[in-house]
Design a protein around this nucleic acid. Structure first.
Lengths: 240, 240
DNA sequence: TTATTGTAGATTGTCAACAATTTACTATTA
DNA sequence: TAATAGTAAATTGTTGACAATCTACAATAA
């Protein structure tokens, strides 16, 4: 848990390396950030169960860290909505209700609509290529049985338009709900042993996203979200 | 700064009071939350200037509190976007660029459109009354010269639809940008000695919000936002 | 037996000290 | 003089202890 920050070594006898790869600034990663990443993963993977009560002391012991940075990490995760903290009382892991899921889909529709409006004229080859890479990655995770990886791949696929559109606030808004969406996707798969998403759904999304008609793409966003939501409804009624 | 929580006293010889007013649960307010509120206000009021570098030790001394809860408060304010923290380096107060303001308006348009779609069939007398109360409060602050109060009143006026629509995630998204919007409004007024908003703009907004045509209201949201943004552009060109 | 009260234990929030890192300033070198 | 190196000071991040608060359990009263 106590990693040492790796320094980037540049050797003087490799001038080609120097000219081809930009030397990126080193960003110091706080310990509490690392704990937050572990905690996020533990929640999404189901290791820490939705709806369960968690305590700082217990988690600090489990992760082998002191309470201070663990508490900061929890603050971050709470800001992302994956846990809910009531002062002086305790903290509970988010348990998504059907209504929560409906909200995720409806808000996503609005945000993704805006994102595509913003990005439409600025799509370029890099965007297309990256979207295809992420789509391929998504399909590949479906061959595995890793709920965390495939839910993450789906979030990454949908994230590209936000990352590309140059609207910081919108990207931030997306990031705020992406964790919840990933939690839902991972849980859904665990609960139903079903591989999500439907494969051809994202194929069509991809084709329209790189296509020539914004209107068609916006219709597809609507349809894509409604399909996602209807699928969830189906599984809920089947589970009951 | 160290307030004591006030207890609600119920006297036994006032049964009428008991039956008419619900005894509300007491919510414990953490110290760090209180600090966050003060810090938020100091930023929005301009007491702590946009773009300025702030340090935990300095603020802790200024507020007369210890660094721990001050640090937590700063974490909260950072999550709201009013300050930006770079690990191990420092924290800067948000300085809104014209592009930031454009983003606020475009995202608000999407969110407020969704909010009115969600709320339209569930508007009732209480909604109408409350919107009128908040509109009136907004007009009253215009008579004063208090940038913080009037910017706050404008945010409150626009908040009602989010609070009413029953979409938690949407309310949360709104709250994430509301602080930035208030900061912009307050700064704008300070910089230009102009009373914002234009008075009849909110009159029209109110009429349509309580009216019968969702389509007209959605057009007004678009128009309202475009007017706001155009006004900002005007002031920017005038200031240069 | 059920309801109420009191208290111990568990947990959360704050505090102050220490560790880690960065920034600013000074001295040295070219 | 400008650039570089070294170091002190300032600041951020973490730690462990203490204070404040809540919850669970035991004892008492009805």
């Amino acid at each position: 848990m106590r990693d040492h920050n790796e320094q980037v070594h540049t050797t003087m006898n490799e001038p080609q390396l120097m000219s081809q790869n930009r030397v990126k600034p080193i960003k110091r990663e706080t310990f509490s950030n690392q704990i937050a990443a572990n905690l996020r993963r533990a929640i999404i993977s189901g290791e820490i169960e939705s709806g369960s009560q968690i305590t700082e002391s217990d988690l600090a012991a489990r992760f082998g860290v002191s309470r201070g940075p663990l508490r900061e990490a929890m603050g971050q995760i709470a800001a992302e909505g994956l846990i809910e903290t009531i002062p002086y009382t305790g903290t509970r892991v988010l348990k998504l209700s059907p209504e929560d899921v409906r909200e995720i889909y409806s808000l996503r529709t609005s945000l993704e609509t805006l994102a595509f409006r913003e990005v439409w004229e600025r799509r370029d080859e890099a965007f297309v290529r990256e979207l295809e890479i992420r789509h391929k990655a998504l399909l590949e995770t479906l061959a595995l049985d890793d709920h965390v990886a495939s839910s993450e791949a789906e979030v990454r696929f949908h994230s590209l338009v936000y990352e590309t559109c140059g609207h910081k606030l919108l990207l931030e808004s997306w990031r705020r709900i992406a964790g919840r969406m990933q939690l839902y996707l991972a849980e859904h798969q665990r609960a139903h042993g079903r591989k999500a998403p439907i494969e051809d759904a994202h194929e069509r999304y991809l084709q329209l996203a790189v296509g020539n008609s914004l209107a068609l793409m916006l219709e597809e966003i609507d349809a894509h979200m409604q399909r996602g939501f209807r699928q969830m409804e189906q599984y809920l009624s089947f589970a009951d």
